[in-house]
Amino acid sequence: MNIFRLLGDLSHLLAIIILLLKIWKTRSCAGISGKSQILFAIVYTTRYLDLLTTYISAYNTVMKLVFIVASYATVYLMYVKFKATYDHNHDTFRIEFLLVPALILALLINHEFTVLEVLWTFSIYLESVAILPQLFLVSKTGEAESITSHYLFALGSYRALYLLNWVYRYFVEDHYELIAIVAGVVQTILYCDFFYLYITKVLKGKKLQLPA
């Protein structure tokens, strides 16, 4: 463990908590893409199957369980409890266009052709594009609530911090995982224009408005 990965995990946890609180407190999931939340639930489910086979540490196990439970709770809140507030008119991204290529790529490019490893690889590829429906929804509505932009900033920062973690591990531990690194770079790049808008607008108290 290193400070970059710890800050990354905490940023990730913060994002998930911000989203759950936003939906629970406002009793509304307006402005949130349910499709992205479904993709995140799939990401954690396929990535953390090793909970059944490998014990890394108490921290690792607890965080994995929190991420899985929180992602399913979010999907439940959006599609069941606060279903009436779900913006299905704007949340129209075809997630099969993300799921199928990620699965095909995982079958072609992986470290080891076993069920667990291919599913882990699939979850890495899927996570790198899982935010697209959310960014697509924000671009369609042309704006995002401040709380939603804080959620996105924390979520985008988590993988950006993981990039620093991988640099650290390469130089200090002589360890690197190319699949996760490439996917992590793609994932962070997708947030770049949002990061720019967040830093130039939201941090100055303005609402996140996308240029029409």
């Binding site: 490893e117 993981y162 995982e177």
Partner: peptide, 10 residues
């Protein structure tokens, strides 16, 4: 290939 180490990251 080297045995795939356990993925110790979240």
């Amino acid at each position: 290939a080297a045995p795939v180490e356990d993925h110790d990251e979240l």
